[in-house]
Structures are given as C-alpha cells and as structure tokens.
Design a protein around this nucleic acid. Sequence first.
DNA 1: TGAAAATACGACCATTCAAGTCTGAATTAT
DNA 2: ATAATTCAGACTTGAATGGTCGTATTTTCA
Lengths: 135, 135
Amino acid sequence: MFQLSKRVEYGLIAMRHMAARSAGQICTAKEIADRYHIPYELLAKVMQRLAKKGFITSYQGVHGGYILVRSPNDLKVSEIIKAIEEKDTVTILQCEAESPEDCIIHTTCTIKDPLVKLQNSINKVFDDLTIMEMV
Amino acid sequence: MFQLSKRVEYGLIAMRHMAARSAGQICTAKEIADRYHIPYELLAKVMQRLAKKGFITSYQGVHGGYILVRSPNDLKVSEIIKAIEEKDTVTILQCEAESPEDCIIHTTCTIKDPLVKLQNSINKVFDDLTIMEMV
DNA sequence: TGAAAATACGACCATTCAAGTCTGAATTAT
DNA sequence: ATAATTCAGACTTGAATGGTCGTATTTTCA
C-alpha cells in the first residue's frame, strides 16, 4: 500500500541511467536490465511505454535502443509516474480515481476535502523532483 | 497504485467522525457505517485495530462503542495510517519495505537516495495534518 | 542474403493483496 | 433472557502486479 510500483521504479532507474549518459548516446533495455539486475522483459515494456509517451525515442535494429528526448532538468518525476501508470493524476484517494458518481460514499465523504489538500502537497513533491536531481 | 487503502479511508472517516462529536460521547461502529454508507464488518475490524493500538477505547455490551482517547489536535494522520496498515513506516519505495538484503537491486539501486528524500517530504505532509484539521 | 540484435506487441500465468462477507464467540445493560 | 455491542477469526472473490513467453518487425552487417 502506498508504494510505487516496480514498473515505476524500473522506469525511474532507466530514466536516471539515460540521463547520466552523455546526451545523444543510445542505451538498450538489455544493458540497463543487466546493469541493475531487473527483469529484462518487464523493463522493456516500461521503456516501450515511455517511448510511446514521447519521453524517449526508440530505434529498432541491431544498434538500436533508446535516447532521452528532453533534458533531464525538464523531466519531472510526476510526469514519468503518470506516463508509466497511464493515469493523468497521482491520486491517494480512491474515490477520486473513478468517476465521482461511482463512489457511494462521495456525498457523505467527510475526509475528501482535507485529503485533497494533502494530495496537492504530495503532487508538489513529485513535481519538484526532476531526473536531473537524481543523477 | 499509490492510493490509501479503503481501510485507511474508513479509519480516517471514523476518527474524524468521533472527533466531531463532543468529547467523551460514545460512538458505535454501526452508527458510523450507516452514516457514511461503508460496510459495517470492514469498518468494525478497522476500529478494533485502532482500539488495540490505543487510539480509541472500546466498550463492549449493549451501550458499548468507542471513544477517542487523545485530543484530535494530537492525532496525526500519519499515525493512523501506520496503525491501520500495521507498518511502522509509510514507504513509497518497495525495497525499503522488506529487509534491504531481500532486494536484489539494492546494491545497484540508484534511485533510492533521491527517493528517500522525497519520502521524507511526504512523511512530513502526513505528519502535519491532524484529525483536528479535518473536522 | 541471411543471421543477429534490437524494439514492439500481445497473450499468458502465478502470486499477492484488498475488499468484503460470514460465523461464532464474549461482554454487558436492560 | 435477550438484545446490542465489541472481538476474533476464517473464508471468498476479484483485481492488480510482477513476471514470462512467443512471435512479429526493423535494422545492421558480415
């Protein structure tokens, strides 16, 4: 509970790794998987997702791999989490996640307002950390 | 992912509810379950846990129920989360949760340090919000 | 031209966890 | 006694997560 998924952890490790490389240098999924002892197939899927979302560019073929698109200091951790989880919010409250009407509690939910404020504070924390600061 | 569990949500709702009551007034699990349309059995278990951890005092029997032990402005949200989840840390990183040796990555994990800092910021957010501020 | 190295994509499985339910106690006021 | 409550488990179900596998497709290069 209240943990980042392995997918996100792997994604952050990969992004950090690429950021540490000199710009424009290509990285393969295999190389990263080996280096950090993480399962290749899973990492590969994460990177494919990151590629699809435009964070990294993919190159197929023998000397293929991935390259960072944006500058590390322009890459918020929050963005990467959202991309990997395919959500557009990082939400601690469950009722927020689905459509508000689905939540039976909704109308009587007394903790929502204070926790939304708390949510904003947490979002800020994730927004403020960039990949740049991780390398 | 990255959400509070229903248990925690229900627990916070219950704690807030009791805090809103005049001090010393007894509340039953059934009353709270009805009031907020949450499943009684689940809420009951959450409150039993909170009782065991000393946040509320339980009274059995016909006019039994629960009463807040401490003052609402002394009740950090972080404490309640930890009590309900039976963890002594609220941890976003998975490698942190188990014993560090279990994590194969551990030795090569590059994102740990920065995320621990981020963790601290988040902890602060949960520490700073009290039940008092929710009522 | 064929083999090798890489990404791309989807199906699949196993395990865990959360949520919820149920059953049966023990306690206590009336 | 009976009813209302907490207490303590076991149990079921469903979904999500982590991980694996198989099979394309693309590209380089010997």
